[in-house]
Nucleic acid binder design. Structure first.
Lengths: 258, 258
DNA sequence: GCAGTACACCGTACAATGTACAATGTACTG
DNA sequence: CAGTACATTGTACATTGTACGGTGTACTGC
C-alpha cells in the first residue's frame, strides 16, 4: 500500500475491470509494440495455484510475477492492480464450476446440491471465504453464470423473483459462514501445532479458574458435552448437517406454505 | 510481517493471552522497574477508537502507540503482538454488551433479541466481521459471558445441549454473514464515490452486452425487479427481515416439533 | 544505605508489501 | 524508413509488524 487512503479500484476507468472479466473482445487484433509474453489467464492461474497451495498471503504481485516468468511490474500490464486480480480469480473459479441440469423434482434436493457444490468449492479454496463478497461480487461471466444456474434451482418453488433472490443469498450465506468457521477451526489446530486436547492441557491452570461452573453453568456443561460427543468443541460435519437442515426448513416455511 | 512464515501467536507461552484476557490477578503487586505509563485497558480502548473511526486498517501498532502516548515498541510490553491486541478488542466489546434478563416467554422473541443485539454490535463496529471468528474465539470473560447469556435464551426450548450450541452458532452465523454483506455493500458505494445508478450508467456499454436476457433470463429479470423494488440490487433491511424469519422458522421446525 | 537486577521504555533496523515512475526496447502504422 | 504505442524492467518509496540492544528506573537483598 503506497498511501494511507484505501486503495481505489481502477480509479478513472471503471470499465477496465469489466472488460477484463468479459475477455475484452477487441483484444485479439493487437496494434503495436512487442508481443505479450504471457496471457491474463496464465497470470490468474498462477495466482490461483499460489492461493490454493500456500494461502492468500502467498499471493503477492512478486510471487505471481515469478510464477509466470516476468518481473513484478509487468503483471500490471495484465491487471490494473491486486484487487482486480483477486476479482478475476474468484470469477474464474465460479466459471469453472459444473452446471448440471436440475433433474430432481424436489426443491429440497436441488437446493441441497447448490449448497454442497458451494461447500466443495469453498473447501477446496478456503481463501475464497476471505475474499468473495456475497452482496457486491465482481460482475463477470463466472458470477453471472453461477447466479443464473442457481436461480434456476428455484424454478417451480412458486417464490416471487425478489424472494428467490433473497432465498439464494440466504442459502449461500449459510454455506460461506459455515466454511469460514470450519477453516478457522482447522487453522487454529494446524498452525499452532497443538491439538485441542493439548491446548486445553497447557492452559489448565488459567482455564480451571476461568471456567467456573457457578458463573457459566450452561457453557461449562455444553462445552464438556460437545467435547465428549464429537472429540472437539466444534465438528464441521455435524454443524453442516444441522445448518443445512435448518436452512431448508426455514425456506420450507415460505415455499410449502404457498 | 518480519518473516514469510505465518506469525505464531504467543509462541512458547500459550497462557500469556489467557492471563491478559482474564485480567492477570497477580498483576497489581508489581515488583521492579519503573511504573507503567499507561494500562492495557487504555491500549485496547485506543485501538478500539481507531478501528471504529477509521477502520481496521488504521489499527497499526504505531498509531495505537501514539494514541496512548508511548513509542511503538512500548506497546509490546502490554500485549505480546497485534493478534493478541485484536483478541482483546473483541473480548472487550463482548464484555460490554448489555445482558438483560430473559423475560419474554416466547423463544422466538428471545432469539430475536439475541440476533438484534449482535446485529447492533457488528453494525457499530463493522471491522469485527473481519476479525471475530465464530468457531475459535478468544476464550476471555467477554466471550464466555456473552456465550452463557445467549445460551440462556434457549432455556425452555427443550433442545439438547448439543443442539442448543449448534442453534446458537447457526443464529450468530446468519447475523455475521448479513452484517458482512451490508458492510461490503455500503463500502462499495462509499469509497468509489459512485452510486449504484452512476456505476450502472458508466458501465452501460459493457453491461448491455454482458447482461444478455437470452443467456441470463432469470438474472436479468431479477436484477431489474430488485432494482425497481428497493432502489438497489441489495437492501439491508429487507435482507435482514427475510433472513431472520427464515432462521427462526428453521429452528422452529426443530423446537416446536418436540 | 548500597549493590544488583528485573523490567519499562525507546530508537534503530529489517524484511516484506503494493505500486509509482522513468528508461529501454520492440513491432506495428504511415 | 520514421514515428509511435506499448510491453518490460529496475529502482525507489511509503508502510507494515516486530526483533534487537541500549538506557534508565525502582525495587530486593545485604
Amino acid at each position: 500500500m503506497a498511501t494511507a487512503t484505501p486503495p481505489t479500484t481502477g480509479a478513472g476507468e471503471p470499465s477496465r475491470t469489466l472488460a477484463l472479466l468479459w475477455g475484452d473482445p477487441s483484444a485479439t487484433p493487437r496494434r503495436k509494440g512487442p508481443g505479450r509474453s504471457v496471457t491474463v489467464e496464465q497470470v490468474v492461474d498462477a495466482a490461483l495455484a499460489l492461493a490454493d497451495e500456500h494461502g492468500l498471503a502467498a499471493v503477492t504481485m512478486r510471487a505471481v510475477a515469478e510464477a509466470v516468468g516476468v518481473s513484478a511490474m509487468s503483471v500490471y500490464t495484465y491487471v490494473p492492480g491486486k484487487a482486480e486480480l483477486l476479482d478475476l480469480m474468484v470469477d474464474t473459479l465460479y466459471l469453472r464450476m459444473p452446471r448440471p441440469a436440475w433433474r430432481a423434482s424436489e426443491w429440497r434436493t436441488r437446493l441441497t446440491r447448490v449448497a454442497e457444490a458451494n461447500r466443495e468449492l469453498l473447501t477446496s479454496h478456503p481463501w475464497m471465504t476471505e475474499v468473495a463478497a456475497l452482496s457486491r461480487p465482481p460482475l463477470g461471466p463466472g458470477v453471472l453464470g453461477k447466479y443464473e444456474h442457481e436461480l434456476a434451482a428455484f424454478d417451480g418453488t412458486g417464490l416471487t423473483d425478489l424472494d428467490t433472490d433473497a432465498a439464494l443469498t440466504y442459502l449461500l450465506g449459510f454455506v460461506q459462514s459455515h466454511v469460514r468457521s470450519a477453516h478457522d477451526a482447522a487453522r487454529a489446530t494446524t498452525d499452532t501445532a497443538m491439538s485441542d486436547a493439548q491446548w486445553w492441557e497447557a492452559n489448565q491452570p488459567v482455564l480451571a479458574q476461568a471456567f467456573d461452573p457457578q458463573t457459566y453453568p450452561r457453557s461449562v456443561r455444553i462445552g464438556r458435552a460437545a467435547g465428549e460427543a464429537q472429540g472437539s468443541a466444534w465438528n464441521a460435519d455435524s454443524a453442516w448437517d444441522f445448518g443445512l437442515d435448518r436452512t431448508l426448513d426455514g425456506l420450507a416455511a415460505l415455499i410449502d406454505r404457498l
